[in-house]
């Protein structure tokens, strides 16, 4: 019970930090930490696959993508977005809600219930014995992210030297 409360508090705190922090890099890392808590909660709710995927995709892979995107931007650059881009998110959200309300419910009802729980095993078993290949790919993604940051920040270092 205590662990459950700690995990839920951690999830809420880090999710809040992800929104509130103004430094994009720190916000991305806070989101990764929130995903880590969520992954552990999934695992404790007997969904080890969901837990492993949450940790590997959101905490690992998506964080690399965020850091890479932040690396592609420059400090102090003016962001001048077209009006269409500003409208894109609310329009997309409204469209998503409409489609979700109209289609997803009936669609989900058509998905047959699974005969039995497909996910078995402890966190370690799922991660190391059932989804081992994913770990190799994770190593690849993280390596790519590190190398990308090395490649994209190299000019800034040269500028400093000059």
């Amino acid at each position: 019970m205590v662990i459950q409360i700690i995990l839920l508090c951690g999830l809420v705190i880090f999710s809040g930090l992800a929104i509130l922090l103004k430094d994009l890099l720190k916000a991305a890392l806070a989101l990764a930490a929130a995903s880590l808590f969520l992954g552990i909660i999934f695992f404790r709710l007997s969904a080890p696959y969901a837990g492993v995927f949450e940790i590997s995709v959101v905490a690992g892979l998506i964080t690399v993508l965020f850091i890479l995107t932040i690396a592609l931007t420059r400090k102090g650059d003016e962001v001048t977005e077209a009006r269409l881009v500003k409208l894109a998110f609310p329009i997309f959200l409204i469209l998503f809600l409409i489609i979700d309300g109209l289609v997803m419910k009936s669609l989900l009802q058509k998905i047959p219930a699974l005969p039995s729980g497909p996910e078995r095993g402890t966190f370690g078993e799922v991660l190391w014995k059932q989804r081992t290949f994913d770990l190799v790919a994770q190593v690849g993604v993280i390596l790519a992210g590190v190398l990308a940051v090395l490649a994209l920040f190299r000019k800034k270092e040269e500028d400093k030297d000059e």
């Binding site: 892979l61 592609l72 690849g140 993604v141 992210g145 190398l147 990308a148 490649a151």
Partner: peptide, 18 residues
């Protein structure tokens, strides 16, 4: 996952000229 490995590397390589 492997799709993303190749993709993340390719984003950086496209921008390599800076």
């Amino acid at each position: 996952l492997f799709l993303e490995v190749a993709a993340v590397a390719s984003y950086a390589l496209v921008a390599f000229g800076l």
